[in-house]
């Protein structure tokens, strides 16, 4: 495994993180925004696993396990929120659900 320099993984994860950030900022569909956030979380997971593996220490992977739990919980709540809003407004476009100024 030492064949792949650690930086490669980190750069890939940084790239995914930034793509996720860009997705949150430019997309208007709430579900896609949420998916972009999942992308960010996954990039963080990749970093954690990379470090964990190169440190030879499993704490990072335990943490990833918790992040996944949280992501699942967030997905349940987040999608419930999106369903609730869809029932009222029949749209999940962030721009269209603006009563207040954003």
């Amino acid at each position: 495994m030492s064949a792949v320099p650690m930086e490669y993984y980190l750069i890939l994860s940084a790239f995914m993180f930034c793509v996720g950030v860009a997705g949150v900022l430019i997309r208007r569909n709430a579900i896609v925004v949420f998916m972009s956030i999942e992308l960010m979380l996954n990039s963080a997971n990749l970093t954690l696993v990379t470090f964990s593996s190169y440190l030879g220490n499993s704490i990072g992977q335990v943490f990833v396990f918790f992040v996944m739990t949280v992501a699942a919980a967030e997905a349940a709540v987040g999608l419930a929120i999106i369903i609730a809003i869809f029932r009222n407004k029949l749209t999940v476009n962030i721009d269209a659900i603006n009563i207040f100024k954003w």
């Binding site: 950030v21 956030i37 979380l41 963080a44 954690l48 929120i81």
Partner: peptide, 21 residues
């Protein structure tokens, strides 16, 4: 609140990853 809170969580987790690393 959910979208921005989760967005912030993304930053926090990434930060934690680097701190851990």
């Amino acid at each position: 609140y959910f979208l921005l809170g989760a967005f912030a969580t993304g930053f926090i987790v990434y930060g934690i990853a680097l701190i851990y690393g």
